[in-house]
Design a protein around this nucleic acid. Sequence first.
DNA 1: TTGCAAATATGCACCAGGTGCATATTTAGG
DNA 2: CCTAAATATGCACCTGGTGCATATTTGCAA
Lengths: 198, 198
Amino acid sequence: MKAVVSGLRERKRRQTRDRLTEAGMTLFLAQGFEATTLDQIAAAADISRRSFFHHFASKEDLVFAWQDSFCLALLDALVLRPADERPIDAAINALIAAVGDFDRDQAEALTRFVEETPALRDREQVKYALMEQALAEALGQRPGATADSLEIRLVAMVVIGAMRIAGENWRRAGDRARPDIYVRRVFDTLRAAVAEES
Amino acid sequence: MKAVVSGLRERKRRQTRDRLTEAGMTLFLAQGFEATTLDQIAAAADISRRSFFHHFASKEDLVFAWQDSFCLALLDALVLRPADERPIDAAINALIAAVGDFDRDQAEALTRFVEETPALRDREQVKYALMEQALAEALGQRPGATADSLEIRLVAMVVIGAMRIAGENWRRAGDRARPDIYVRRVFDTLRAAVAEES
DNA sequence: TTGCAAATATGCACCAGGTGCATATTTAGG
DNA sequence: CCTAAATATGCACCTGGTGCATATTTGCAA
């Protein structure tokens, strides 16, 4: 049985992990991503350079830890959707729920930072692909769904893609409309654009 | 005026470029991507290691040169579409035209190779993002289009995404149905999945 | 043909991220 | 308290990629 109260081991692990992300982000924001070396980060977090890689597989991963948590939130929100919802609606509603729970100021700052760093922009695309895959799997495991169907993969693709573009748009516009409204508007536009010509 | 017949300069450049891709791909297929070093490639192409970077910005780019040409074909096909077609239809039809012109056996072999090499899988996502952006710009420059509209970006996202998934599916299924049929089937499924519930 | 400017190729030093491996150090739990 | 597993560290090493100064080649005009 796993300890209910996390043991000292796991606690310490989390601690150093957090120390790393904080030290890293501080340095990144101060001097830029590329200009910050792993040695600096390790030193600031009071850890050996080698041990860094016991917590993160790469320098980039330090930045994208948060996106993982958003992905998890999305999947959690998905299982709360009623079983009779179609995949697309379940996914959209889960997205709306997940996006509502997040610290938008922080997310925006981080995203702006990512945007202006080529290496991170690249890595972001990879993350989106992973999110899409995770969403597709989750949709495939819903009650009554056929795992790995074409429809499910297309829905995952569209939802993650729309999320990405909605985010860009939201940031660019600068207005702070409620994100759920934004998401809905994007999907309405999408439906209209894709629909068979009447 | 640029010379109609490419000068010696450009011809030589292309030659070495081709020598590099060929040497690279041969080595990659023989020993794998990661296991092949730039020194080996440069040696095989009879060029200095440093000069490699005058032709390709990175080792990965060596593999993805072909995808650029596909992207160009897609954009070329797009300008041939009638001006009164909606963005989505113009893009789909351009995609069908472009995909029909390509050496599918080679594309498949290459894609399989990319799939089983993590570094290349990552890079592929970046390429898709670039294609999406290029397509969006091209759609924005069509006669009578509003550049940079939300609709256009969504259409580009959906078309490139559907292309990607259609490709995966086509490869996985193993049947060799005509690609245009495949593409249409995917878009039909997509429309049905996204459409407002009746 | 010659001479000159631009493009291209090369060599070299150097940086930094990432890995393998052997070795300490710490924690869990009987 | 003692042992096995997890974690941390140090170190050597590889390789992709860049900056820079220098040669070599090509285009073109006088």
